[in-house]
């Protein structure tokens, strides 16, 4: 049972001026300290007393974390970049239609104005949109700690379970890197939720690369259907070597539905989630395929 108490439990609060200072606080917190960025997931968890940290380390004063940059490898989205800033960022709009489409499904304006892209990834809600998108995009997270410096964690190794990631207690994700989309790739994010803005009952992130009418690559990740999103490829779906797109998408949908053991809650039964996974997988793939430029070069949403 959730707590009936909605005032936040007591905790200490620090807003360090530098990343190093923040890392020191986390290291000293011995697992009882939590990083606070936008707080749009963490504060409700505190209000419902699902989390009881002794210390919150607010990153708000740490310089240099709120930027979106581009280098040869792709986009770099800093830890304090809000969903609102990301969705309006010209680089994101130009380079990552899938991310943009996923962002549009998140919450409402007053949530996106503070919620951060990296925060959503680190929160690892099994029904959230961005982890699925990150998997399909092949994103990588940069984590830093006081003792061990910096390391890179690919998205496919990052999500371990519900609200659980590969991050150690003393680490901070400083940015997420989103590789440039290959030419001739089309993408689509689709979801069904009870109301617009709610977490998905089922969401699908899809990327398809085509040559003419042939599908040469396909990546999928579903949200809301398990303890964490998982990346699925043509190989994993047992569909490698399939030449024509016709029939492929419905087969992919059936294959996805068959392999899932989705959870059940008051919004959707497991059977319904499995059914939706089939329906949405097919729709998302078809749309992504339609968006992929036959001649090469990414086409937007």
């Amino acid at each position: 049972m959730l707590s009936w108490l909605l005032k936040l439990p007591p905790f200490a609060y620090r807003a360090p001026e530098s990343l190093e200072e923040g890392l020191e606080l986390l290291a000293a917190g011995d697992g009882e300290a939590r990083v606070l960025a936008g707080g749009q997931s963490l504060i409700p968890m505190l209000a419902l007393r699902l989390a009881r940290p002794s210390l919150l380390v607010d990153l708000r004063r740490v310089p240099g974390l709120a930027e979106v940059k581009e280098d040869g490898a792709g986009l770099r989205i800093g830890a304090l970049t809000t969903e609102l800033v990301a969705e309006r960022d010209p680089l994101v709009r130009a380079r990552s239609p899938l991310l943009l489409e996923a962002l549009d499904f998140i919450g409402h304006p007053a949530i996106r104005s503070r919620g951060t892209v990296v925060g959503s990834l680190c929160h690892a809600d099994p029904a959230a949109e961005l982890p699925a998108a990150a998997l399909v995009l092949g994103a990588e997270l940069t984590a830093r700690s006081l003792g061990r410096g910096s390391r890179t964690i690919p998205a496919r190794d990052f999500f371990l379970g519900p609200f659980t990631t590969a991050l150690e207690f003393d680490e901070v994700v400083t940015e997420v890197r989103v590789p440039a989309a290959p030419p001739a790739e089309g993408t689509c994010f689709l979801e069904v939720s009870r109301r617009p803005g709610d977490f998905a009952m089922v969401g699908v992130a899809a990327a398809v690369t085509r040559e003419g009418d042939r599908v040469v690559d396909l990546r999928l990740a579903l949200t809301g259907v398990g303890d964490r999103p998982r990346l699925l490829t043509l190989d994993e779906l047992g569909l490698e070597g399939r030449a024509s797109s016709e029939g492929l998408f419905s087969e992919a949908g059936r294959s996805v539905g068959a392999r899932l053991r989705p959870p059940e809650d008051l919004h959707a039964s497991a059977t319904y989630r499995r059914h939706l996974s089939t329906v949405l997988t097919e729709r998302a793939l078809r749309t992504a395929f339609g968006r992929a430029d036959i001649r090469g070069g990414a086409a937007g949403a």
Partner: peptide
């Protein structure tokens, strides 16, 4: 609601609409 859903507590924080029940005063 005090858990960030109803929007009744929305204020402008540095010009952006924000749920004031989901922001620490210290932040």
């Amino acid at each position: 609601c005090e858990h960030g859903v109803c929007g009744a507590c929305t204020v402008l924080l540095d010009s952006l609409p924000t749920r004031s029940c989901l922001v620490l005063a210290a932040s």
